[in-house]
């Protein structure tokens, strides 16, 4: 019987050592592949009809598209239009990772700090490089808001720099911690049920209480899975706007 943290265990499926690095295909990688297959499948299979009046799957695909398009337009501005596929892929990748993890026995790759950190770092580097490409050294003005008096600037600049470099950390830890906490909580409550069931007839009935609790928590986790994917993409949009427009 698994402890509440065993669900996060990485299991090797295909051993794949590449020059000293262990790039094995693991259950984590398997779920990433499943996520992109599902996402691509939804979009391509759903849109196969190209119907004027959409069916169910096509509606979902279009809804997803318009939702992210609206988010990018509102939060990253019109200039961010070329980066829409990037934000869309981020959103879909995280969303499907979160949702896949909710399937019992499945693995949640977004509950691994290294995965979320890799994604957040990618966003961070992308946005920073984009900022320098767009504005050159002018991009450094991001750390000094317009019209700051010089005696406050000494205080503001370090704060701005720190808050800028904390971005990838907070972005990744938020997602990772949400997933970790939610899934651990579900498993802990499920564990209560099982241990109560071991206590005979009374325990069997009493064990239903954590089950009911888990049902409610599961609903909450669904919400969290969607919200965290949204927040991840939303904050990426906000960072992108900073790089595109300065402020």
């Amino acid at each position: 019987m698994a402890g509440p943290l065993e669900q996060f265990e990485i299991k090797q499926i295909v051993h794949l050592p590449v020059g000293g690095l262990d790039l094995s295909f693991t259950n984590s990688a398997l779920h990433m592949v499943a996520a992109i297959v599902l996402a691509t499948g939804l979009l391509i299979y759903g849109m196969r009809g190209r119907a004027m009046v959409p069916g169910r799957l096509q509606s979902m695909a279009e809804l997803l598209y318009e939702f992210v398009a609206g988010m990018v337009k509102e939060n990253a501005g019109e200039k961010a239009r070329p980066y829409f596929p990037f934000i869309f892929s981020l959103f879909v990748f995280v969303l499907f990772g979160n949702l896949l993890g909710l399937i019992p026995m499945a693995f949640t790759f977004t509950s691994h700090i290294i995965v979320t950190f890799a994604l957040a770092m990618m966003v961070f580097l992308f946005v920073t490089i984009l900022g320098f490409v767009r504005h050159g050294l002018h991009f450094l003005h991001l750390f000094l808001p317009e019209g700051t008096p010089w005696f406050i600037a000494w205080l503001v600049i370090p704060i701005e720099i720190i808050s800028y470099f904390v971005r990838p950390v907070s972005l990744s830890v938020r997602l990772f911690a949400n997933m970790l906490a939610g899934h651990t909580m579900l498993k802990v409550f499920a564990g209560f049920s099982v241990s109560l069931a071991g206590m005979g007839a009374v325990g069997l009935v009493g064990g239903l209480v954590p089950v009911a609790m888990n049902v409610a928590l599961f609903g909450l986790e669904f919400l969290v899975a969607a919200i965290q994917a949204y927040v991840f993409a939303l904050l990426s949009c906000v960072y992108l706007r900073d790089a595109l427009e300065l402020h």
Binding site: V173, L180, Y230
Partner: peptide
């Protein structure tokens, strides 16, 4: 809506950072 989601995520993240710290201490 957008602001509330951002605010909610930022506020909740503070609690989750604490949770992560707790996990780190425990495990």
């Amino acid at each position: 809506r957008t602001f509330i989601f951002i605010g909610f995520a930022l506020t909740e993240a503070a609690g989750l950072f604490a949770l992560v710290i707790a996990f780190l201490i425990l495990f």
